[in-house]
Design a protein around this nucleic acid. Structure first.
Lengths: 212, 212
DNA sequence: TCAAAAGTGTTAAGTTTACACCCATGA
DNA sequence: TCATGGGTGTAAACTTAACACTTTTGA
C-alpha cells in the first residue's frame, strides 16, 4: 500500500511572468497583492494549484481570469522553493513565462484586478522573489526568440519587419542593424511576407508579414 | 493575516538524474523502488522534501545518503506536476540533474541501496515519468557541456584530452573530429594543461589537463 | 617491429558584422 | 518639398568543418 503520509505537504503556487509588447516596449503584467502577506505590494500574477489540476492548467485558469484568453503560449521556467520565500507560509512556486498578444486580450479583466502593464526595464520592487523570476524569464525569452518562433506570440497576426525588429531589440536590450536583421529573418521559413501593406506606421507603406 | 488554509497542500519530491562517466560511457544511477506504488520498478533516486528544507537541500541530503558526497554539482531542470503522474497520490516533483565524479563517491552506499549505474543509451523502462526526466536532463547537459565547464564535474581531477573528448562524444551522441575538438579546447581558459603525463591509457603517454 | 594511442595545420565553407544611401508617400 | 519610415548589397572578419599523417613507446 502507498504510505506517503509521514511526509509533509506544501502549498504549491504557479506564478506567471506575463509578457506583452506594446508601443515598442516589452511589458510585464503585475498587480497589487490583494492579501497578506505582502498585501498591497506589487506582485506577479499567480495563484495556488488546486487538487486535481496540473501545473499548466493552473496557469491557464489564472490567465483566463486575468486576461480572458485561452490557448495562451506558456513555458515553464523553474520551481522556486526557498523555505522563507513567502513570509506567511511555506509555498513552493512553479514559474511560467507567458506571451500574450495585445490584439485580443480583455482589458476590462486586467482593470478589474487592478493589474497594470509595466515596462520590463522599469519594474518596481516586487514582493518576495518575484523580481528574480522576471529576470530569469527575460533571459530565457531572449534565448528563445533567437531560436524559435515565439515572437509571433507577442505580435498581432500581421506585422511589419520594423515592428518585429523593435520587439527583438526590446527583448535583447540592444539595437540591431536593420539590414542584418532583415537578412536573418528571410532565412526563417516560419516567417513569411503577405501581399498586404501597412499604411498606418509609414506614408510609404510596409509589407506585412505573418508567422506560419 | 495570512490565510492560505483553504488551498490544498501537496507532497513535493525531488528526483535526481545522477550522471556519472565511467569506461567511456555516460551512466545514470537508478534503483528499484523500495515502496508502493511502483514497488520493484526501476526508478530515479529521489525523495520527499521535508519541512524547513529547501529544494536544493533535499537534493543534497539524498545525494549524501546514496553516494556519500557533499558539494555535488546540481542543476534544476523542471517541475513535473501532472495529476496522475504518481499513481499512489498526487506528488509534484522537482527534477535536478546531478554530476558526480567516480573518483571519490562511496560505492558501498549505492550497493546498500541496490542502486546501479546504467548506460544512458540502454536505460530500461523507469517508473512514472522518469524516462522523460532523463531525456530532458540529457538534452540540457548536452547544451551545458558546450558552453560551461560542467565536464569537469564528471571527470577526475586530472584527465587526458582523449577522455574529455570521449565524454563530449557520449553526451552528444556523435563522434567529434580530434583536431577540431582539441582546438576548441585550447580556446577555453578554464581548461589547462598540467606538466603531468598519464601513462595508463597509452604507451606513449598523454598530457594531463585540469579544470581551473 | 608493430600495435595503440597521442599529437599536430591548412583550406574551404559558412556565418556574422559593419556600414550608407535611395525610395515612396502624405502632409 | 520635406520629413518619415521602408527598403536594399557587399566586403572583411570570424567561426566551423573537413581532412591524414607522424610520433612515441612497451610488449
Amino acid at each position: 500500500m502507498t504510505n506517503y503520509s509521514s511526509y509533509p505537504r506544501f502549498f504549491v503556487s504557479v506564478d506567471c511572468v506575463i509578457f506583452g509588447f506594446k508601443d515598442g516596449k516589452l511589458k510585464v503584467l503585475i498587480h497589487k497583492r490583494p492579501y497578506e502577506p505582502g498585501l498591497g505590494e506589487q506582485s506577479l500574477i499567480g495563484g495556488f494549484v488546486q487538487r486535481d489540476e496540473n501545473l499548466e492548467n493552473a496557469v491557464f485558469r489564472i490567465l483566463k481570469e486575468f486576461t480572458g484568453l485561452d490557448n495562451v503560449y506558456i513555458r515553464q521556467l523553474a520551481a522556486f522553493g526557498e523555505v522563507e520565500r513567502d513570509p506567511g507560509e511555506r509555498v513552493i512556486s512553479v514559474v511560467y513565462y507567458v506571451l500574450i498578444n495585445f490584439e485580443n486580450y480583455k482589458e476590462e479583466l486586467t482593470k478589474e484586478h487592478n493589474a497594470t502593464w509595466v515596462d520590463v526595464n522599469e519594474l518596481p520592487k516586487l514582493c518576495f522573489d518575484h523580481n528574480e523570476m522576471v529576470e530569469k524569464a527575460r533571459k530565457e525569452l531572449g534565448e528563445d526568440i533567437k531560436n524559435t518562433p515565439v515572437a509571433g506570440k507577442l505580435l498581432p497576426r500581421y506585422f511589419t519587419l520594423t515592428q518585429l525588429q523593435t520587439l527583438h531589440e526590446s527583448i535583447q536590450g540592444q539595437l540591431i542593424d536593420k539590414r542584418n536583421f532583415r537578412r536573418s529573418i528571410s532565412d526563417k521559413d516560419y516567417i513569411q511576407a503577405t501581399d498586404m501593406i501597412d499604411k498606418v506606421m509609414s506614408r510609404r507603406g510596409a509589407t506585412l508579414y505573418e508567422f506560419k
